[in-house]
Design a protein around this nucleic acid. Sequence first.
RNA 1: GGGGCUGUGGCGGAAUUGGCAGACGCACCAGAUUUAGGUUCUGGCGUUCGAGAGGACGUAAGGGUUCAAGUCCCUUCAGCCCCACCA
Length: 812
Amino acid sequence: MPEKPYDHIQIELKWHTRWENADFYKAEENSAKPKFYVLEMLPYPSGTLHIGHIRNYSIGDALARYKWMRGYNVLHPMGWDAFGLPAENAAIANKVPPREWTLQNIAAMKKTHRRFAFSYDWDREVSTCEPNYYRWNQWFFLKMLERGLAYRKRALVNWCPKCATVLANEQVVEGCCWRHEDTPVEQRALEQWFLKITDYADQLLADMAQLEGGWPERVLTMQRNWIGRSEGAEIDFKLASTIQPIRVFTTRVDTIYGATCVILAPEHPLNEQILTADQQASAKAMVDARAGRDPGDIAKEGFFTGHFAVNPFSGEQVPIWVGNFVLMGYGTGAIMAVPAHDERDFEFCRKYGIAVRPVIRPVDGALGVEPGLKEAFPDDGIVENSGQWSGIASEEARRQMAAYAEQHGFGKAAVTFRIKDWGISRQRYWGTPIPVIHCPTCGVVPVPDEQLPVILPEQIAITGAGRSPLENVPSFVNVACPKCGEPAKRETDTMDTFIDSSWYFYRYCDPHNDRQPFDPAKIEYWFEIDQYIGGVEHAILHLIYSRFFTKVMRDLGLIKNSEPARRLFTQGMVIAEGAKMSKSKGNVVGADMLAEKFGADTARMFVLFAAPPEKEVDWRFEGAEGIYRFLGRVYRFVTRNLGGAGGSGASDRQVRRKLHQTIEKLTVDFETRWHFNTCIAGIMELMNVLYAEEANISAAAIQEVAEKLALMLAPFAPYLSQEIWEELGREGPVFRQAWPAFDPELAKEDEAEIVVQVNGKLRARISVPFGTPKEELERLALADERVQVHIAGKQVKKIITVPDKLVNIVVG
RNA sequence: GGGGCUGUGGCGGAAUUGGCAGACGCACCAGAUUUAGGUUCUGGCGUUCGAGAGGACGUAAGGGUUCAAGUCCCUUCAGCCCCACCA
């Protein structure tokens, strides 16, 4: 026997992912029980394995194997095949990337783009370089363009002057560029492509009812807040001096008689018309000062424009101000300030000496005592000092006043969403090229279908100049307009890679289709997804985007379901030294080390053993050895006992009982809560019993135990269980076998152990046959010596008895 | 500022509905095997009093409900996450 007998079945983790993908997770269309499990784990093409991914993968893989053994048809899509990449396993195994240029460039980009901080993005973005996949991204984009769901407009973006590049919001750290911590980020207006996710805001919200119960409440709440629907009214305040009225959004039109000024966002378009040059400069300074900063740290500031607007209800002239706390991105970018009934307005107006005028009386209180105190901001109440509306309850007043505004043409009831349209333009080299051509005469022209996909040029220079590097590739940019044939320019922006992840699971169902994104019939077979597994960090990004895409695809007639996934499981993040593990923090733990030292079985089992899957786990290396030891114990036990004469059989009954108890425990856990750490602990307990009783187990019992062990370990340690399976002389993949059944009779203990308490404290234990009557239990408990000691000289007041479990004697 | 989650030994964590707190593993200690180390096997391992049998205390802190609370309720503290001037 070799010194470390388990070592020869240790296989590299990376190889493992391919091996599995190739052979065992192909869908079987004829299965009686179609089930679909999507995992967010894709195999890595390079040597970098992130421990967080091992976790995600191990959880999903254990479930997939279990479900398979339970007779489900499991689609366990593993990435590359779905994107039509060269599927040769050997290429991956030998760490030869499928497209070398891609990876080289990614390595270069890695140095300048923070997006790589997210391991999840890594595989997504690699996949994005594949024409076979982004062809269908482009197809979708053009379909959306046709329907007005994709559009182009000028928008403000973060800009770092030192990098000379656009930054995503996440790349702005405390108002400065993440790479230049002393360089404040500026706002620049650039032409950007957007998808109209706001058209679906109501549906995204309403359809959450279908997800109730299947998705974690926390994720639904986050999405609800993110979408942020609020009902209110839009009201026009006419300017005395110009033609264009200021439209404000308010949820409290009932307070409009208390509006003592109108405040514009510093970026408000009207500012260009009404502000002096100096004022415009101050407004711009406000915008710059605000970028990326913690709003709590910014004092409210503003200035009077010198102009006035008319309150259409009261006819009063109110001053127009510009305020840094008014957001252009929400509502209309202008508000009416009602300082008596809004804390923010109050803070602003008090600072600048603007009048405070209460108009809402609490139902059981007086009007506006000491404005500014918390109590002085009643939510709803009775409208006062408001002309014909005085005396009406807030809610009713809101309804009536909105209707009145609409009748008289100066406003209407309106719903505003917090969610904004999805800006998908990226000035990055890679990503799916946006398939349009800009023609000087025809305008924006879609790339005709037969010219798809638009492919990225391979030889490019990463300039870091802040414009897409594609602009410097004349062969890519200079094209003929498909409409008029005259010289035109190709769009150089690429798509956000969240596009790719928004529908990848549909593509998984039909990965090699080259005529359409997928065959709708196949989607109908597999969808909705029964169980989706992913990190909670995607609650409002990926998980909203993919819901949006699903609805768009449904409206395109491609699919029938409105939601992608019926159930969502959010696994906890992997934390290192108290901080979220990310490449930018440099605290990423590679799993390679773990896999190389102990092998794939140990690596995956260890991350499952560390904590239940929904829990955050602080990563530490110690402890992996325990799993390695355990697997060695299993292997040694099986190999040294199989084929032997066996022991007396005196412990068979006990061993069988433990075995069936263990199977029961695992089965229940897999069916309910996926606490794999306790599953593994259960198997360890079984092993401890086996070691203790080893000499007294018959050959037949050994055989049974070894077989069931292999089956139970299959979801967690596939290699070892396969090895045992073959040691047993059995053939084929072990997880093609049925999950072992447990016999409740065998699992049952012979006798019930009764806990005897006196005044709630444990004093004795007695063994009795199951079903012993209450009176008998009480008699036995009272008779126990140790109980006697504690009740001696005291009066027994009460006895609580739980059959087969507990007797509690209350004495006084 | 708003919303949510979590607090159990030296550490990761068990305890399914209120019913034996600390399963399982790590670390540590001791013993066996070994020339030694490593490996492997066996045993110990919350705090404290006691020679021992055994007792007392103990699940962030305080209070409550209950025969019985890690678990339910209230208050406080600490940590983490998400959103954040959303009119």
